[in-house]
């Protein structure tokens, strides 16, 4: 479904964020992208839908090259790529329904969207998605009245409103507590299976990733250093990805139960999903 060839991104500051990335994601596969902060995970998924312009290399979506498309063609491409954000990225002053319907913007004209005159089928679909994520009674609530987990559910519904072929997920659980994190991950993975979507999930929490995904790609300093099954993540491989650390020591430490998968701290991240 998605094919990246030699993707490279060098920022104007001179930092090389991505170096010659080759990646192939077939439909229906859920792929977790792990790596330390600054490894280029965020840049990689933002290059795919061209929120960040890659310096060189090519992006192929559904066998169509979208590396250099502009204007209407770019919007056509983006419409096929749903995106879910770390901080939910809801428009907080719009209602839940408006937030979900904004996933259809690329399908309707400006004036229709301005006057909120969406087709009946769109509204039905939005309602079904809200039902699927368990928020149909909240449709008139404003975005800022929701809890973190609810906001992320609205974010998921918005991404799926696009009827995407590819889903990009940027740290979906970084701002959530461990229980909600698992619920959100399960929801995302189930929906991907149901709709046969190719999915890339950026995630810090390795344990959580191992539980839900089919394939793990480890990124370090803009290069792929691991690509394989979740079970293959041995301590040696984690060391190559994240650097030196005792990966087994704290596994039985009771204090760590309180740590939530919050920041870039690898240790906490590893144990975040630990019951």
């Amino acid at each position: 479904m998605l094919k990246l060839k030699g993707l490279t991104k060098r920022y104007a500051t001179g930092d090389l964020a991505l170096n010659d990335i080759d990646l192939d994601v077939p439909a229906g596969q859920v792929l977790a992208l792990i790596g330390p902060s600054g490894a280029g995970k965020s840049t990689l998924i933002r290059c795919v839908n061209r929120l960040v312009e890659p310096t060189s290399g090519s992006i192929e979506l559904d066998s169509k090259d979208i590396t250099n498309v502009r204007g209407g063609r770019l919007r056509q491409a983006r419409r096929q790529i749903g995106m879910i954000f770390q901080n939910y990225a809801l428009v907080e002053r719009l209602s839940v329904m408006e937030n979900v319907l904004s996933g259809r913007l690329a399908y309707v004209g400006f004036w229709r969207s301005y006057f909120r005159k969406f087709p009946q089928s769109d509204i039905q679909q939005a309602f079904e998605l809200l039902e699927r994520v368990g928020l149909e009674t909240m449709l008139d609530k404003r975005g800022d009245a929701l809890s973190g987990g609810q906001k992320q559910r609205v974010g998921i519904a918005r991404a799926l409103m696009q009827n995407p072929k590819l889903l990009l997920v940027d740290e979906p659980t970084a701002s959530l507590d461990p229980k909600t994190s698992r619920q959100i991950m399960r929801l995302i993975c189930e929906l991907c299976q149901e709709q046969n979507l190719a999915t890339i999930i950026n995630i810090h929490d390795v344990a959580l990733a191992q539980q839900f995904v089919h394939r793990v790609v480890g990124l370090r300093a803009g290069e792929i250093v691991y690509d394989g099954a979740p079970d293959g993540l041995s301590p040696e491989i984690l060391t190559t990805i994240y650097g030196e650390e005792d990966w087994s020591a704290d596994k039985h430490d009771d204090d760590q139960g309180a740590s939530e998968a919050k920041g870039p701290d690898v240790e906490a991240a590893l144990l975040g999903g630990h019951p």
Partner: peptide, 14 residues
């Protein structure tokens, strides 16, 4: 939110 709405493929005015 601007990034999010842009990523849905919405036009500039949208």
């Amino acid at each position: 939110p601007v990034e999010a709405v842009t990523s849905t493929g919405a036009g500039r005015m949208q």
